[in-house]
Amino acid sequence: MQKTDLLYKYLRTDKKFPHLWCPGCGNGILMGGLIRAIDRMELDKDNVVVVSGIGCSGRLPVYVDFNTLHTTHGRALAFATGIKLANPDLVVFVIMGDGDATAIGGNHLIHMARRNIDINAIVINNNVFGMTGGQYSPTTPSGAKSTTSVLGNLERPFDICKLAMGAGTSWVARSTVYHVRRLTDLICKAVEHDGFSMLEVTSYCPTNFGRRNKMGTAPKVMRWIKDNSIPVDKAKDMTPEEIGDKLVTGIFVDRDDPEYCTLYSELRIKEGYDPHEHEHGK
């Protein structure tokens, strides 16, 4: 079977399974999308790096057979910066959760957006700190319940895509764990984009968010995501009131900005460095 081939080709099946994600979690769907995209792009496994921070999303690299790095909380993008600048030939994915990317790692996120290093960031947004048991995150909706907002969340949530756009990201998109094929397409497009790309994947946490906010079972939330998603083309002609709290999906920004590694290698040459002379010495 072709599907099982894919599993055995890209997962560390003999080493680290079963995984630790809860039944109904969206993380596995993202992992599937990532693997399918890498397979479709025919990327060399030896040249793929997957970096993560801390949280449920942080465990993803353990399961996939690439060069994998599980860093400290919120710092995945900064570690990835070092890797990519040291070896620009590597294809670097950074998998983060919403807390990882926008709370503790928010500063790194906006500066990555500004620098435009060719790194593919994927933020899987389940609106909650899942691994620590369900505390409110910067993307938890106002009024929602969590273990640290039992009486309702007083804070306003970030729109991760708008945050990334505001900071100057040259490629921004949103997909969901329901739209699996579209998710795979978008990951491919993110890889193709020469510069920092930021893909938000709307997910959910049935264990620590859905349960406390009476959202029902995982399939029910999945249906909610399906019914409440609007493609960006369609949303263009709608008023903000019509859009409301619906999920707008698709590519928001796709700009051809100068990429940092390219700029830096040009600077080296300008300073008298000859890359060909050192090619074989490495």
Binding site: F79, A80, I83
Partner: peptide, 15 residues
């Protein structure tokens, strides 16, 4: 914080 992270990343990439 990110400076320390970045040098670890670069070292992981062999530099």
């Amino acid at each position: 914080i990110s400076s320390m992270a970045a040098i670890i990343g670069a070292s992981i990439a062999g530099i």
